[in-house]
Every structure is written in C-alpha cells, then in structure tokens.
C-alpha cells in the first residue's frame, strides 16, 4: 500500500530517518518537515543516504521548514507547501507519521 512517511525529528539526534529508509517500499513517499529537513544539508551522510533511495520513491520537503532553516534543497527533494501536503496525503493510500 503506497504510504507517505512523514519525518519531523532531526536525523542528527534521532534514528527515525535511518529506520524509515530501511522500511521504505517501492512507491512510498518520504516527506521531511520540521528539523527532519536538516537531512538535506550538503555534504552529510544523511543526504548521501537520501540520494541513494530508488527513483520510484519520491522525496519531499516542507517549504516553510526548509526556508526557516535557510537550507538549499537539493535536486532530489521536491519542495512543497501545505496545499500540496494535503494533496499528497490523498495521493498516497496511507500517511505514516514518525512521532
């Protein structure tokens, strides 16, 4: 079942990103919001791991959290706003928030 995984904890203080990457299925999506967008920082193992996920898994990042942290989103991440977040939650069959 295509699932949108939503991460909000920093990948530098929490293991949810690495756990999530192991569990991602083909056709799942991954949305980074809050401190989880720090995974997009250049020259980090976290970004390298994200760049290795298969093309069938789309990576998204919430615009206001990317902007608030002055991060230049890499090409592998699609930056989205709240209306798009709502549309994505309907595009995927389930939304799994990693709390």
């Amino acid at each position: 079942m295509p699932t949108l995984h939503v991460l909000s904890d920093s990948p530098f203080t929490d293991a949810s990103l690495s756990s999530c990457l192991r569990l991602l299925n083909e056709d799942d999506g991954l949305l980074l919001c809050g401190d989880a967008v720090y995974a997009l920082l250049a020259d980090t193992p976290q970004l390298q791991a994200l760049e290795l996920i298969p093309d069938s898994i789309q990576l998204y990042a919430l615009e206001e959290d990317v902007q608030a942290r002055s991060i230049d989103a890499p090409a592998c991440a699609q930056v989205i706003d709240y209306p798009e977040f709502v549309r994505l939650s309907l595009k995927f069959a389930k939304v799994n928030s990693w709390l």
Partner: peptide, 10 residues
C-alpha cells in the same frame, strides 16, 4: 475518515 494524519515530535 479516509485519512488519519498524526502530528507530533519536533
């Protein structure tokens, strides 16, 4: 609901 969306954490 068609979707349950949970918010928590940072």
């Amino acid at each position: 609901a068609d979707r349950l969306i949970c918010f928590g954490g940072a």
